[in-house]
Simulated scan of single mutants.
Amino acid sequence: MKTDRIDISKVKPSAYQPLFDLHNDCKKSTLTDLEFLLIEIRASQINSCAYCIQMHVKEAIEKGEKQYRIHALPVWRDTPFFTSEEQIILAMTEEITLISNNGLPEILYKKAINTFGEEKVADIIMAICGINSWNRIGVATLLIPSPSQE
């Protein structure tokens, strides 16, 4: 399936670089690889970005994430598969991705600070902001996933 939408990476490559820098910074942050990927997958699901879902699910499986956990992400609150720390990260991902609904509720923010400390909370917020930017590019330009998506 081909679209006639622009390829921003070609039209405006300099605009992509700060997003790559943020992504790379987040990968070197206090987040584990799997925590970072849970953020990327869950935000991408909420934003209906098929391209990012495909890419990050593939990477998560390659890094050892269990498929049953990936499949359960949309209903994570109703499963026993995620640690209390992951539940905080997933809740933050949902609230920040849908920021116009409730903002980041104070009770969740305080729980995150008490659990992770300021540096990791900053890393979580920045990772969520980063993937939301990528999702918006993917959805706006109709990026198409491929089965191999390397």
Score class of each variant (00 low, 15 high):
142 L>S: 04
123 D>I: 00
109 Y>F: 15
121 V>E: 01
59 E>Q: 15
104 L>T: 06
45 Q>M: 01
107 I>H: 02
97 T>W: 02
91 A>L: 09
105 P>T: 10
62 E>F: 15
82 F>W: 04
40 E>D: 14
139 V>L: 03
55 M>D: 10
54 Q>V: 11
143 L>P: 02
146 S>N: 12
87 Q>E: 10
119 E>G: 05
74 P>A: 05
129 C>F: 08
138 G>V: 04
56 H>Y: 02
113 I>C: 02
31 L>Y: 12
105 P>R: 09
93 T>N: 08
90 L>Y: 00
80 P>H: 03
116 F>A: 01
139 V>W: 05
96 I>Q: 09
106 E>R: 15
52 C>H: 01
67 Q>M: 15
84 S>N: 13
118 E>D: 14
136 R>M: 08
44 S>I: 00
147 P>V: 08
48 S>Q: 04
139 V>K: 02
97 T>P: 05
70 I>G: 07
80 P>M: 04
71 H>S: 07
94 E>W: 13
35 E>H: 06
141 T>H: 09
53 I>S: 10
33 D>G: 12
62 E>R: 11
138 G>N: 05
78 D>V: 00
96 I>Y: 00
71 H>E: 15
59 E>V: 05
50 A>H: 09
92 M>A: 13
106 E>M: 14
69 R>K: 15
56 H>F: 11
101 N>Y: 05
131 I>K: 01
44 S>C: 10
145 P>R: 12
37 L>Y: 04
125 I>W: 07
93 T>M: 09
109 Y>L: 05
59 E>N: 15
127 A>R: 01
47 N>T: 06
144 I>K: 10
114 N>F: 08
